[in-house]
Structure formats: C-alpha cells, structure tokens
Design a protein around this nucleic acid. Sequence first.
DNA 1: AACCGATTCTGACAGTCCGTCAGATAGCTG
DNA 2: CAGCTATCTGACGGACTGTCAGAATCGGTT
Lengths: 239, 239
Amino acid sequence: MVRKLDDMSLAESAQAAVGPREVRAASGRLAGTRALATRARLLDCTRQLLAGRSYRDLTAIEIARECGTSPATFYQYFPDVESAVLTVAAELAGHRGELSEIVRSANWRDRTAAETAARDLARAFMDFWGRHRSVLRVIDLSSAEGDMRFRTLRTELLNDVTNALAEAIADVRDPRRPGHLGPGTDPMAVAAVLVSMLAHVASHREGLETWGIASADTEAVMADIVCEAVAGRPSRRGS
Amino acid sequence: MVRKLDDMSLAESAQAAVGPREVRAASGRLAGTRALATRARLLDCTRQLLAGRSYRDLTAIEIARECGTSPATFYQYFPDVESAVLTVAAELAGHRGELSEIVRSANWRDRTAAETAARDLARAFMDFWGRHRSVLRVIDLSSAEGDMRFRTLRTELLNDVTNALAEAIADVRDPRRPGHLGPGTDPMAVAAVLVSMLAHVASHREGLETWGIASADTEAVMADIVCEAVAGRPSRRGS
DNA sequence: AACCGATTCTGACAGTCCGTCAGATAGCTG
DNA sequence: CAGCTATCTGACGGACTGTCAGAATCGGTT
C-alpha cells in the first residue's frame, strides 16, 4: 500500500501524520527524500505551466512531461490536476503575513501615516498579484465556483489583511472625527469590500493597462479609497 | 462545404455575411431555421451545464448529451467548448445598458440623488451577477489569462458603466467642493477601480456570506464608496 | 562488492473525450 | 414521389485519465 501524499501539503507543518487516509494500497509510511524531491519538482512544473497554458488546458500528462517523468508518477502524488494546483495555491498562504503586516504596523489615526500605509498596501497587492497571478486567478475561479477547498484557502489568504483592516477601522472610528463611512456599517464588511477591490484590480492590472489606464493611477485611486474608508476624510483637501 | 457559424454569434446583428471564413467544407450559405434552433439549444445546454459543473470539467460531449444530440453536431457549430462559452458570454453584452443607465440617469451633483443612485448601482451589480454568475466567472478568468476574445468582451460589457461613471466624476468635480479624490486622479481610473470593486464583490457575494458578512452590508458599503468617489463627501455626516 | 528489502518509478491498458470525416437522414420543391 | 440540399450522426485515429503489476533504484548489511 502506498500512501497518497496529497493532504500532507495542506499542512506542511506538524500534523503530517494526520490520518491514514490510505488511497491506494498498503503501508502507511511517510515520504522519503527522493519522493519529496519528485513531488516538489512536479509542483514547480505545475506552477510554471499554469503561467503559460490556460487553466482549462492544464493537463496531468503535460505536467509529467515537462517534469521529465511519467504520468503515473504524477498520479502517485496527486489524485488529479486540481489537487496539484490546490497544493501550489496552499503554498501562497504562507505569505499571507506580507499584506497584513503593512496594515498592522501603521498608525491609521495619523493622516500622513495613513496615506502612506494605504499607498503601501495598494502597491503590495499589485506586487503580490504580479508575482502569483496565475495561481491566484485559479483560486478565485474555483472558490467562486463553490469549491470549498479553494474557498477555505482564499479565506485563509485574505483573512489576515481583512481582519487587520477591520481592526484598524474599528480602532480609528471616533464620533468626533467626521468623514467615515456611516457609523452603522460593519467594519468587517468595509474591510472585505476594500480587500476585494484591491485583489480584483491587482488581478486585472494588465487588462486595465491595455485599456489605457496606468497602474500608477489605479494604485493612487485605491490608496485614496482605502485611506478614506479606514481613516476617514479630513474636512478639507481635494481640489 | 459547410460554413462554421461560430463568428455569427459575436455580432448576431447585421454583419452575418461577414467573410466566407469557410472552416469545414463547401458552400458559403447561411444557417436555416433548423440549424439555428439546434445551435440555440446547444447554447442553452452550455449555459445550464456551466451553472453546475466547474468550467474545467465542462466537456463538448456532455453538452451534446444534455442536448440529446451527437458530439459531431456540437462541432458543427462551435470549434471548441471555449467558443460556445464565449458565445453565451457575448449574449450578456446585450444587457450592458442595464447598469450604465442607472449611472447616466442620476444627478450626481445632488447629494441625496447620488446616494440613491449609488445604492441602486450596487444593487444592480449584485442582481446582474446573481443572474449570470457562472458565465461572468469564466469571462473573468479567461480575460485575466490574456485571452483577447474574452478580454474584448469583458471590456465591451463594463465599458459602458465605466465610461458613464467617469463622465459623472468629471462632471461633478468642482474646485469649490471639497472631499473628492485628489484632483489629479484620472476619472477613468477612479471609475475603473469602482467597477472592479462592484464586480468582484458581486462575484464573491456567496463567499462573503458564508464568511458571515451580510450582502446588505456589503451593498451599503459599496454604495458609500461609490458615492464618495463620484460625488465627494460632504464636510459633515458620519458619526 | 554483491545482496536484499523497501521505496520509487514506469510501461501498458481500459475507458473517455477530442475533432473529423464520409455517408445517412430529414426537409423542401416541384 | 423524385431529387436536391441542409442537417445530423456513426465511426475512427489520436490524446488524456487513472490504475495496475512489475521494473528500476536506493540505503544499508554482510
């Protein structure tokens, strides 16, 4: 019996010995070095191909070929292409701190600091999406299609920033400062909407540019909107 | 020679007799009633299946089966599954007025009217996405993947609203009214970001609800943000 | 250095889907 | 009903899926 390694990836950490969950044959053994290397190579190829082919056309055979191994080997490690992609996606969750850190470390009560933080946040989203766009696209589609594995992952990924923003909003909100979104609005809803905006614009940056809208502009606009929503608008400023 | 009908769909209108563009055999003839009916039936099934299966698993054979016809028939009308979906998607472009109308018919200089319009717009996005989510998802993915056919379509779909918003923004902008996004910001960029936000939140409504954020709240938040960005914020209001 | 057991990989196969013919069927006209 | 044309489909070669049983490889042992 060969134990499938699929679920290992979802929690690369401690609980590698979760449940037997034997999918193929005998022996509940862990993976050796060679196996781990092969698996990693397969994941690399998956990531790489995903950046080129369309998700719909990504095929198990092609991944195996690109990796210089046989299709059977692929199936040794992943039950299907989706799972391999899910695993690649799961690796992104490790970087989730990058974004929330920016939010948490800023003092949103100070106008100038807030403006800088908002700008940094927008830029960070652009960066992050730029580096991982192909994978993030798939996460988005699959989670929108209702696949809970991807939806959980997406939540995990964005949870941090969203929470951080919600906290900042709740923290800054002050009856004496005018200009916030209505006091009745749920900070979490505001945060979620902001994150959605950042994510989507980042994801379609290329399209917007094709259409004649410079990234620098969208970045600035997003920063403004974030800043307003979180820190509120000072009574005078714009033109 | 049988003429492929694929491109017909992209411009159901006048130019049905575009170019010969014979893909299969002889005779550059137009489709008869029966053919049109079959094609329409195939499109219906495509739409319907897309709502259930995941895009990745949507297969030509399945569409044909669902439709009670043979796979060969499917290929008579569409070169591949993608094209069928593209055609289904193209039909949505016909509804693009729904959204822009809301923007155009409102008087954004009047605060109350602007608030109502923004709210209506948010609701309209939610509605529209609710009705066509499965197709819109695919448009999003494919255009993000760089497929120009889908990207053009997406642009066509959102162009109207975006332009309308940009016009509204430019129109309302007035040096004496404080509270707008920086005067240097490109109205088009602002509009594009707003539309992105609306679209993405609408597309992930379900996910947000699962996560405990009520649609009514997100709707309100989006409306607020749109209103601010377009009409500017009055010097006093929130708590 | 030759052997052994466990680990890892792969050739080969049955099943399904893709995409394309040539030819069968159905509809219209006289 | 004959004849013509538009429309549909059976059937095929080729590709991908998913699963074996057995081959290749590795680490350790004598």
